[in-house]
């Protein structure tokens, strides 16, 4: 979360900042912006395919403008990040179109268990994010969104479900499958890299 590096005893929470911002506090907005600006940019970049990267700036701007116009409707009993990413994802859906919805439906297999979350996979994604971020491109849109929200934003499955407008079980399933997929891709990349090094040595 954005407050990770801050001393939580002195720094206001995202929710407190959002409430102040809703009442017109410029400083609260600036702090919130500092916390979420780069994260939103990266979130959008990872979520969009290479053909859609030109939309990143536009969706970024629209998300903030929508946050601004909807600021008075923010409910402080919910987490700010959930509300924020719901707006971002809705904007993304509006811009990119129905391909997103289709991909979410295709990714959710009702016959699969939703309790397959593998803690080892989670650790891999979390700790080596900078190493695996290039592999995110190989995930489907919905997997990528779920994974970014889970391991980057550290949202709970309930919150991911709320943002993505799917059931809690489906959210868990998506995250679990995305982590496994990343692990597989990561292992493959390691094997390929190892083979190349061996070849060079010879």
């Amino acid at each position: 979360m954005g407050t990770e590096l801050c001393d939580k005893s002195t720094e206001p929470s995202d929710n407190d900042l959002m409430v102040s911002y809703a009442y017109g506090n410029e400083q609260a907005f600036s702090t919130l912006f500092e916390r979420y600006s780069s994260k939103l940019g990266s979130f959008l970049r990872y979520r969009l395919s290479q053909k859609q990267t030109h939309l990143t700036e536009e969706i970024y701007q629209k998300t903030w403008l929508k946050v601004h116009s909807a600021r008075k409707s923010f409910d402080p009993t919910h987490r700010f990040s959930t509300w924020f990413y719901t707006i971002a994802l809705n904007t993304l859906r509006d811009e990119v179109g129905s391909s997103y919805e289709k991909s979410v439906r295709e990714e959710i297999d009702p016959n699969r268990s939703s309790e397959e979350s593998n803690s080892e996979d989670r650790l891999l994604v979390k700790e080596r994010f900078h190493q695996v971020e290039a592999l995110l491109r190989f995930l489907s849109e919905s997997q990528r969104t779920a994974l970014l929200l889970a391991d980057w934003e550290e949202l709970e499955s309930k919150e991911i479900a709320e943002v993505m407008k799917i059931s809690d079980a489906s959210a868990r399933q998506l995250v679990s499958r995305a982590r496994r997929e990343i692990r597989k891709l990561y292992d493959q990349a390691l094997v390929t890299e190892g083979a190349r090094t061996e070849e060079k040595k010879r």
């Binding site: 410029e26 940019g41 700036e57 970024y60 900078h130």
Partner: peptide, 21 residues
């Protein structure tokens, strides 16, 4: 990985200034 502050781009600056304004 994302808690590291990155330099702001033009677009980020424009959004920040517009909402502050």
């Amino acid at each position: 990985m994302n808690s590291v502050q990155q330099p702001r781009s033009n677009v980020q600056d424009q959004v920040l200034r517009a909402i502050q304004g």
